[in-house]
Every structure is written in structure tokens, then in C-alpha cells.
Amino acid sequence: MVKEIDRAGIPVTHICTVVPISLTIGANRIVPAVGIPYPLGDPTKGEKKSHEIREHLVTRALKALTVPVDKQTVFEEDF
């Protein structure tokens, strides 16, 4: 799906746990998620911390949309 959105000229960030799959299928902007059962947040760390993690990841993913890339890029760190 991610490729078709890119193909249409709409920038898209793929937030996903299994980054290797995302790289194999050809996503261009990738933000690694926390885990399969909870991609955005970590309920085992309490609600406040979980929300904080989600906020960081979503913010990073949004900022990734503003970064010009010419190849598949994994945004590992906040920037």
C-alpha cells in the first residue's frame, strides 16, 4: 500500500515493527515501531510513559515527511 501512496506523489511514512519487511517491499520513509502487539507506545511502562513514546514516534514520523529522500531511509533517532 505504502508504495502506491508514494507513487501518487503523497509522501508517506511507514511506521512498522518489522523494518526488514518494509525495506523488502520498498517503503521509502520508515520509522521503526515499538513492537507488533503495540506499535505506538508501551503499555508495560505505564500510561504516561507509553503516551510519551507514542508522541515521540508520531512526531518523528511526521517530521520524516518533510525530509527530502532519494532512497529508502530508516529514521532511527528523533531529529
Binding site: 515493527t17 518489522v18 523494518v19 526488514p20 521503526p32 515499538v34 513492537g35 507488533i36 502487539p37
Partner: peptide
């Protein structure tokens, strides 16, 4: 013997 995990770090 190995396993299949839900976190990339474990994989």
C-alpha cells in the same frame, strides 16, 4: 532451537 519474536531487537 530458536524462536520467533514480536520485537525487532529480539529477531
Amino acid at each position: 532451537l530458536t524462536n520467533e519474536n514480536v520485537f525487532l531487537m529480539d529477531k
